[in-house]
Computed example of a mutant assay.
Amino acid sequence: MFGCLFEAQSLGIAVPERLSIVGCDNLPIASQITPGLTTVLLPTYELGEHVARALLRWLADDVPPQQECLPIELIVRGTSGPPSA
């Protein structure tokens, strides 16, 4: 997503006025660039823990994994906005 932002800036495309950009994983640099990158924060550590536990339970007790939802968070910064009129 950073490449998309930098390319839009080099082409003179106004972000977020003409183009909204949203990244994923909330890397530390996302808040340090200008404009800050709007991002989706995924609970990757917790996801790994849940997958490992489900896999171990499946192997040990023959209980197949169940569907599970983990919370995600949208962190709004300067690269997203409403569509232009």
Rank of each mutant, 00 (worst) to 15 (best):
M1N: 05
M1Y: 11
F2W: 14
F6Y: 08
E7D: 11
E7C: 05
A8Q: 00
A8K: 03
S10C: 01
I13D: 09
V15F: 09
E17M: 10
R18S: 15
V22K: 02
V22L: 13
G23I: 00
C24M: 13
P28G: 12
I29Y: 02
A30P: 00
A30Q: 10
A30F: 08
S31R: 05
T34V: 11
T34K: 15
T34Q: 06
P35S: 03
G36W: 11
G36C: 13
L37G: 10
T38I: 15
T39C: 05
V40K: 07
L42N: 13
L42K: 04
L42D: 11
P43V: 06
T44V: 08
E46L: 09
G48D: 00
E49K: 03
E49P: 00
H50W: 00
V51P: 11
A52H: 10
A52I: 02
A54D: 10
L59S: 08
D61E: 07
D62N: 05
V63I: 12
P65C: 00
P65L: 06
Q66L: 10
C69H: 15
C69Y: 15
P71G: 13
P71L: 04
I72N: 09
E73D: 15
L74M: 15
L74F: 07
I75G: 04
R77M: 07
G78H: 15
T79I: 15
T79C: 14
S80H: 02
S80F: 01
A85P: 14
